[in-house]
Amino acid sequence: MTTGITGRTAPRDLDASILLVDDMEDNLVALEAVLAALQVPLVRAESGEEAMKALLRQDFAVVLLDVLMPGMNGFETASHIKRLDQTKDIPIIFLTGAETANDPGYAFRGYATGAVDYLTKPFDPWVLRTKVAVFLELHRKNRQLQELLDDEQHRLDEFARRLADVERQLAEDTETAALAGSIAELADALHELRGEDR
């Protein structure tokens, strides 16, 4: 499933998407063919500017970024990605043609701008798919961890609210029986938060 930046894009809460950035149609088609087996949405951008627009509209698990593009090249695009709080943690895999493959300065510059990997075209499809799959799995695990943390925070917030209710009852000199019942409920909640059986 592929969407261009002018087409319908996936919602922000989607589990994972991959951004493909290349100014050459043939390269985008090749990337789509290689990554189709991963069965996640693939979003195209044909320039650094289009890539930035896509990144601001939805979440991505990984960006595959061509180095040499007219206008905003891959290095400049990566620098913009890493400067924004919303996008700075998205892994970038640089893809470069044979004309720059033997120049160590390109690889150094790629890693210096925040790339996690640097592959030369033509690349081994299996290697690229495997590397991308690792970042998809990391993205999924991070989302699961964030959901667990959010759930735990919700439980702690609820506990704090209930504790505040008890403190308010104490301040208002509420009857002892009602206070005792509230304290018992709080004790149960505390044991539940700790995962303990009573």
Rank of each mutant, 00 (worst) to 15 (best):
L170P: 01
T6G: 01
T2R: 13
L68N: 13
A107N: 03
V21G: 03
K141N: 11
L128A: 01
G48K: 07
R129E: 10
I90D: 05
I18Q: 04
K141I: 14
Q144P: 05
D66P: 08
A180C: 09
R143Y: 00
P70C: 04
E32Q: 09
E152H: 14
E175I: 10
P104D: 02
D15H: 05
T130Y: 08
D89R: 11
K88Y: 07
I18H: 03
L156P: 05
D197T: 15
A160F: 08
R129P: 01
E185C: 08
G105S: 08
L95G: 03
L84V: 12
A107Y: 00
L35E: 06
K121H: 09
I81H: 08
P41I: 05
D165M: 07
Q169M: 12
L35P: 04
A133Q: 10
D22G: 04
T100A: 12
R194V: 03
A133N: 10
G181Q: 14
K82S: 01
D15K: 09
M72I: 11
D173P: 07
L163N: 09
H154I: 04
K121Y: 09
R155T: 07
A98K: 15
L20K: 04
W126R: 14
V40M: 02
D85G: 08
A180I: 09
Y106C: 08
T113H: 08
R83D: 10
A36H: 14
A115Q: 00
Q146F: 06
H80E: 13
F108W: 12
L145N: 01
R109I: 02
L68A: 13
D165H: 07
L65C: 05
I93K: 04
T176Q: 11
A164N: 10
V127R: 11
L28P: 02
L19E: 05
E76D: 15
F159T: 05
L149M: 13
E172C: 01
I90H: 05
H191S: 11
L19F: 04
Y118C: 03
R57K: 13
M69L: 06
L149E: 15
L55S: 06
V63C: 00
E175A: 15
L145Y: 00
I183E: 01
L28N: 03
D13C: 03
L84H: 13
D124R: 07
E152A: 13
I81V: 14
P11G: 05
E32M: 05
D117C: 03
L55F: 06
H154C: 11
F135C: 03
M69Q: 06
V34G: 02
A98V: 15
P91S: 01
L179F: 04
Q153T: 12
E76P: 03
V40Y: 00
R162L: 09
D188I: 09
R155D: 09
Q58S: 15
R57Q: 13
R194K: 15
